[in-house]
């Protein structure tokens, strides 16, 4: 399947969001990959909006799109409850960071496609009130 590259703007937003989340002082989540923490934080508002199965569908689509861009994500899967597994073994830190950015960017990009940038940002800011695009 031919990949779809997220726009530079969305990619940059994903990159900054991951960096922001990584910098946040949350000891309980310290062993959890940052992309997983971001995905879990987005799960709540998105499940409210589209249901848990709707959230799983969106994440699955984002993962499929991301895998086409970053082959290193091929081992990552989505569990029936909508959580990601296989994120701990994404290669070196550079490859791991790129995989996280791509997956997050594809998820945010899907939201832009469906509901527009304004509403996507509104969802993001609700979860990360201090974060600004």
């Amino acid at each position: 399947m031919k990949g779809r590259t997220p726009s530079p703007k969305i990619r940059e937003l994903a990159q900054r969001l991951l960096a922001y989340e990584a910098a946040s002082d949350n000891l309980s989540d310290s062993n959890m990959p940052t992309v997983l923490r971001v995905s879990e934080k987005l799960r709540r508002p998105l499940s409210t909006l589209v249901g848990s199965s709707g959230f799983r569908s969106l994440l699955a689509r984002a993962l499929t799109l991301a895998k086409a861009q970053v082959p290193g994500l091929s081992a990552v899967e989505i569990k029936p409850d909508g959580s990601l597994e296989g994120l701990h073994d994404l290669g070196n830190p550079g490859q791991s960071a790129e995989a996280g950015i791509m997956l997050t960017a594809q998820l945010l990009g899907l939201l832009v496609t469906f509901i527009g940038e304004g509403l996507m940002l509104s969802l993001v800011f609700d979860e990360w009130p201090e974060f600004r695009a």
Binding site: P45, V50, G54, L58, I115, G116, L119, S122
Partner: peptide
């Protein structure tokens, strides 16, 4: 109608105020 699609279409109307969402 899934809420995602509802938002997609309803925001085309002028009365839709994105700032009220959530």
């Amino acid at each position: 109608e899934p809420a995602l699609k509802m938002l997609r279409y309803q925001q085309q109307y002028t009365f839709f105020d994105a700032s009220k969402l959530n």
